[in-house]
Design a protein around this nucleic acid. Structure first.
Length: 508
RNA sequence: GGGCCUUUAGCUCAAUGGUUAGAGCAGGGGACUCAUAAUCCCUUGGUUCCGGGUUCGAAUCCCGGAGGGCCUACCA
């Protein structure tokens, strides 16, 4: 079986992780966990991008070596992954020897084949910003904006990669393989970009201008510039492993779809004679309270702080529940609290707690054996059947937000079932028929809770494990078998109580 | 300039061209007491951005207009 190999983009370590980084990790993790649950052999890679000018500058500003600088920041990203309970199998850093080795091999191969050539580049260069400028950077009157300082026209030698030769092939591939880019409408953007002739890609920087990078294997006076370094991580991490390449999914932000992931990367691979990834998933961006996320305006959500305050599953749940994959979405405390309180605490959390309480009070803390039951039981089971059939395909199509909504509806249906049976009333009756019905009701609520929560497993794995724990249950490894209604909890001893999602303290 | 997307209830979003445009949350009313002041039931709320057109029939398709967003070679 082909391994399901999934990656996140690697994060540029020029700052601390924020909500956007967290989202991409969580989304990818949910897909990875779900595929594992569906029986796939999954390999999940994430990592950090550690070369380049900004890092060189940041290191210089702190008066330390770039390596020391990235060594200080990279762990933050690793820690965030742990904190978010990301189930990655590997974490690659572009400063690792295993990565540099593969980058050099690919570059050398392309150079030998004549796909890379040296040429002179002439342009306007800002010494202050240490970058080339373009005409669009000019003021309307043709002068250069203040921030660039002195701008001069210079000529520089660099190495270029022949992109253009593969343009037609790529257009054809995208048109033929409609699953190559998800969501599908984003493929239009790529094709639009490809409707103009491609310029060859500048893949180097002279060492005197940028020292912090991987030296070109065929010319040590130059270092590799961004894309051949960064994109290659997806391959370098698994180059020595069997049956992993090509990737099944690259999960990335919509901003780096065009051109790097949808154009440069497939062409690089094709030129190297390597298979190209099956699919690229471009997700949307989070705004905060309706405004673009930025450090300067202070609307900056620290994932770690959030996890400390509300728990990892609350954050994971919100990110996945709120965003339609591919679309943008807004993060606000109000909206978070709505989801947290009404869905996690009141609907699901309270169901857990009331189930435990009633089982303790009316059945000696043991899940009873159900009798046949009547119409309410049949309705509940039918609701489960429908939910089960709907949710799995929704998840397969990355419609996690809709899937979670359906799962929550089933939890609501379970709460409604309980109201209908009112076990607290049955508990007061000595009538054997009522006692039988009571046992049936308790068994049904426990089973429904087990099943409904199992649907959330990819999103809130810790909480689901806790629910199973308080139901005295240990799930098997076959997730799909866990979704079968069969009263396997009968006879289990349940916990006394369990507050899964405590109501947050009211803040004025 | 060119291209793409979007506009539906107070908010977030659903509705293969086919009954009376639906959910959740918020708002209003009621029930219940096992439970995290929770749960359940009922309910208010729509000129589907505007104007034309095609059609037996349009939120949906076409044309025009307005608002919002995005891409057009450095940021998840």
């Amino acid at each position: 079986m082909k391994t399901f190999y999934i990656t996140t983009a690697i994060d540029y370590v020029n700052g601390s992780p924020h909500l956007g980084h967290a989202y991409e990790k969580v989304l990818t993790d949910v897909i990875a966990r779900f595929r594992r649950m569906m029986g796939d052999d999954v390999y999940f890679l994430t990592g950090t991008d550690e070369h380049g000018q900004k890092i060189q500058q940041s290191a210089q500003a702190q008066g330390i070596e770039p390596q020391a600088y990235v060594d200080s920041i990279a762990p933050e990203f690793r820690t965030m992954c742990e904190k978010l309970e990301i189930s990655n199998d590997d974490f690659i850093r572009t400063t690792e020897p295993r990565h540099k080795k593969v980058v050099c091999e690919l570059l050398q191969q392309l150079f030998d084949k004549g796909e890379i050539y040296k040429a002179e580049y002439q342009g306007y260069y800002s010494t202050r910003q240490e970058q080339f400028l373009q005409d669009k950077d000019r003021n309307e009157d043709g002068t250069w904006p203040e921030i660039y300082g002195e701008v001069s026209e210079i000529t520089e030698s660099n190495y270029f990669f022949k992109l253009g030769a593969y343009q037609e092939w790529l257009v054809d591939h995208i048109k033929t393989n409609t699953d190559f880019i998800f969501p599908r409408y984003r493929a239009k953007q790529v094709l639009e970009f490809l409707s103009e002739p491609l310029n060859d890609l500048c893949i180097s920087r002279p060492k005197e201008r940028l020292a912090w990078g991987i030296p070109l294997p065929f010319d040590p006076e130059f270092v590799t510039y961004v894309w051949f370094d960064a994109l290659t991580n997806y391959y370098s991490a698994v180059a020595d492993k069997k049956d992993l390449w090509p990737a099944s999914f690259h999960v990335i932000g919509k901003d780096i779809l065009v051109p790097p992931h949808a154009v440069y990367w497939p062409i690089m691979l094709q030129a190297c004679g390597l298979p190209i990834p099956q699919s690229i998933l471009a997700h949307g961006w989070w705004s905060i309270n309706g405004a673009k996320m930025s450090k300067s305006t202070g609307n900056f959500v620290e994932p770690a702080e959030f996890v400390d305050q509300f728990g990892v599953d609350a954050l994971r749940y919100f990110l996945i529940r709120e965003m339609s994959v591919g679309q943008d979405s807004d993060f606000s405390m109000d909206q978070f609290l709505v989801r947290y309180n009404s869905e996690l605490a009141n609907n699901l959390g309270n169901l857990v707690n009331r189930t435990l309480n009633m089982t303790n009070r009316f059945a000696d803390a043991t899940v009873p054996e159900p009798a046949e039951g009547g119409e309410p039981e049949a309705t509940l089971r039918a609701a489960w059947q429908k939910t089960h059939e709907e949710v799995v395909p929704l998840f397969e199509q990355f419609q996690f937000n809709v899937g979670l909504e359906r799962a929550m509806s089933f939890i609501t249906a379970t709460n409604a079932y309980i109201e209908q049976r009112a076990p607290w009333k049955l508990g007061k009756s000595q009538d054997p028929a009522d006692q039988a019905l009571l046992r049936t009701a308790l068994a049904h609520m426990a089973e429904a809770l087990r099943l409904g929560s199992t649907l959330l497993q990819a999103v809130t794995p810790g909480s689901v494990a806790k629910i199973q724990g308080v139901l005295g249950y240990e799930a098997g490894s076959d997730w799909q078998a866990e979704l079968v209604w069969d009263h396997r909890l009968t006879g289990n001893a349940v916990a006394k109580n369990c507050i899964l999602f405590p109501r947050p303290e009211k803040k004025s």
